[in-house]
Structure formats: C-alpha cells, structure tokens
Computed example of a mutant assay.
Amino acid sequence: MTAFDDALLAPDSDLVGLTAAICDIPSVSGDEAALARAIEAMLRARPHLEVIRDGDAVVARTNLGRERRVVVAGHIDTVPIAGNLPTRLAGTAEPGTKGTGDVQGDDRVLWGRGTVDMKGGVAVALALACEIGTPGVEPGVDLTWVFYDHEEVEAARNGLGRLARNRPDLLAADFAILGEPSNAGIEGGCNGTMRADVVTHGVAAHSARSWTGENAIHGAAEVLARLRRYEPRTVEVDGLAYREGLNAVGIRGGIAGNVVPDECVVTVNYRFAPSRDEAEAEKHLREVFEGFDVTVTDSSPGARPGLDAPMAQDFAAAVLAVTGGEPMPKYGWTDVARFAGLGIPAVNFGPGDPLLAHKDDERLPVAELAACRDALRAWLLG
C-alpha cells in the first residue's frame, strides 16, 4: 500500500501532485479504507469544516449560516488495477507556481487508474474543501463535500445510496455537483441502467444422444438475434439528446462437456433515457424478449438534466466562461440520479474524458484539473 503523506495533500500543494497521490493509494471497490482515512485526516485538520465518517464515506461541511447549500460529491473507489499504477506524468511543460491557475495551459498528461474516473474530480474537490470557508475565502453558500465508497459495484453497496438511506440530512442541499469526468464541461442528468437475465430452457441429455434432449444454449440464438435487430432510440429530454443501448454483456450455460444443457442465461444491460422510469424500462425489456423468462437483477433510475434550476443555470454560465464547455447529456449512469431522487437538482462536472474511464490507458490532461478547479472556485466564491 502506498504511504499517505498529508503534507503532500496540503491545500497549497501542486494540484497534479495531489491528484497523483490520491490515485496512488489503491482503492478498488471494497478496499477504500486507506484512502478514506487519508481524506478524513486531511479534512479534520481544517478547523472550518465539520467532518463526519460513515463507513468509508467522508462528509465535510461548512456551517456559515448561508441561506443556500451546495453539495460537491465524488466517489473514491476505482475498478480493478490493470498494471496502471503508480501514476506517471508525461509531457514537457514545466510546472507553474503553486496556487490558482498553476497548471492552466500545461500540456502534460497524468496516466493511471483513477485519473479520469474519478480521482481528478476528487482532487479538485479536496483542494477546494481545504480552501473555501477559511478566513478571507468565504463562499456565498454553505458547502457539503462528500467523498464516498462503492460506486463501481452493484447499486445496493453504493456509499452515497447508504448515506441517502441512513443520513439524508447530510445530503440536504439546494443544488449538487458530482465530479464525474465530463471533459471539464457540464453533463446534465444521466441515462438509467438495468441488468436482466433472459433465460432459455431445454431438456438435459447425454451429448452422445443429443436427440433425446433440447439444447438451451441453441435456444439462446433467438435472444441474440433480437439484440442484433434492436434499434436503440435517441431521446431528447429537456433539450439534451440521450442515446439508449441494449446489449448482451454475459452468457452462461452448461454443466459438463458431455451434457446437453437444459438452461442458458443471457445477461443484458439496458441503458434507457431519463424520460423513462424503471417500471417503463422493465416493461420495454419484457416486450423485447416476449416469450422468454426475464428477471431484473439490478436497476438504477436515470435523471433528467436539471438545467432549468436557477443555480444550475448560474453554474453553467460560470463553466462556459472558464472552459467554453456547453452542457451535454451524460450517457452513462451516475449518482446524479440519487440526488434527483432526493429532489436536489444535480449535474456532472469534472476533468477527464469519460470515454477513457475504465480503460487500461486511462489518462488525464493536467490542464483540465485547473480548468475545473477555477470554474468551480469562481462560481462558489461569486
């Protein structure tokens, strides 16, 4: 385990070093404890913050008596490491001076697991949590910073979901920003996601006498054919176009090399536009696979863009002024849906290309770190 050095993560440290240090503490889902302890120690050293630990989630709050409160949240876990830690920094640009703007215009790239999904966003939030609310750096809103566990696994284990169930008071806010990678622009809402098992049945038999049985794996050919013929929709929701998708993501069947299998299971993943709720999504799946047994195994609702909320519009204007990024839809599922379920408008905003999330060559342009930090800082202080 990489040693944690709180001095390295001091608020006036280089933002690139902060990001690298966070990434270099391995925190695959289920193994976030070391990073959670490090984040907790860093935040407890700041007297302007009230810090609460819940499992491997860390919540830090200002209590300045402001009329409105904003949540800035990010998950601290990653998918499994693929030989891509520790991080490495590539490029020729010289680091700038520390502080705001220190890496603007920097052409370096930070490589490694978590740089995009989503420890770049976590680093931005940590740096600002340590600064904003200190004497002379006072925001116009109260702030809640949430660093949570178990996002990259099934929804039932999600740390933000746990907080929403057990401590909804910690998430109470007028607006929320989730630091998921969005190319330093705003991505509104998110698609919903549903996994289901589509089951075919047969009759078991000895493979030497296969005519006495019925092969369930062969029967799955029709399931796959329907998937090949399926034409996903593009749906406009509140001015943003969301692309749907329906794909087989797993198949299993058979118990031995000489037995005709009597069951085959095709696991499918449906990504549905936020215009549909979970019940409508399940109904659609059952229509697509009519005639087969369909069992939903995991589901999370989508979220509408939320860009009609006044605070969201103000934030979008601030981001546009700094990064030039116009709001776009979020195709993948994110925890903005949990905030939407709590009645809190929320958007995705963080450094990194979401197309590089979970890839072995995951990498983050250094300049995007500063762009996100500066846009968020300007809006919070403005």
Rank of each mutant, 00 (worst) to 15 (best):
I177R: 10
D106G: 07
A172M: 10
K283A: 14
K330S: 15
L8D: 14
R162L: 13
R61K: 14
E231S: 11
M1D: 12
R228T: 09
Y230H: 15
P47E: 11
G253R: 01
E32G: 01
D197T: 01
E236L: 04
V319Y: 00
I177D: 09
T100D: 15
I25W: 08
A367P: 07
G202R: 00
E152F: 02
N191Q: 03
Y230F: 15
I255D: 00
L170Q: 10
D102F: 13
D12K: 05
L128F: 11
L285E: 04
N158A: 03
E263R: 09
A129D: 09
T87D: 06
I39R: 00
N63L: 11
G105I: 00
A164L: 12
A225Q: 08
P181K: 06
A82G: 13
A196E: 04
T234W: 07
S207L: 05
F289N: 00
M118N: 05
G250S: 14
P181R: 03
G30E: 09
E138C: 08
D117P: 09
M118Q: 10
P305H: 05
D24L: 04
D374C: 08
P232Y: 07
V203Y: 12
E187Y: 14
R69G: 05
G74E: 05
I177N: 14
V249Y: 10
D12S: 08
A90F: 11
G382T: 15
T100Q: 15
F339H: 05
V146F: 08
I25E: 04
L381Y: 08
R243E: 14
I344Y: 01
N348Y: 04
R162D: 12
T323N: 14
V122L: 13
V141K: 07
G30M: 06
L369R: 05
H75W: 13
V266I: 09
V366F: 02
L43E: 02
D106Y: 05
P327H: 08
Y148N: 12
C372E: 03
D277M: 08
L128E: 07
A337E: 07
L15M: 06
G350Y: 11
I25P: 00
A309L: 09
G254I: 00
E263M: 06
F272N: 04
I251M: 13
V294G: 03
P181S: 11
L15F: 02
R304W: 11
V116L: 12
V109S: 09
E152Q: 11
V122N: 10
A317W: 07
H150Q: 15
I344E: 03
E94L: 09
V58G: 14
N84G: 06
Y331M: 14
R338W: 12
A204K: 00
E362A: 04
G96P: 10
T295V: 13
A73K: 02
E154I: 14
R61I: 07
F175L: 05
E326A: 15
A20P: 01
F349Y: 09
E180G: 07
D360Q: 14
H48C: 06
V16F: 01
S275L: 07
P11G: 01
G105T: 01
G325R: 13
E154L: 15
L227G: 00
L89N: 13
V103N: 13
K359I: 10
L9Y: 06
V266Y: 05
R363N: 12
H284E: 13
E278K: 06
A318M: 04
A34H: 06
K359S: 13
L143V: 14
T193Y: 02
L8F: 06
G332W: 03
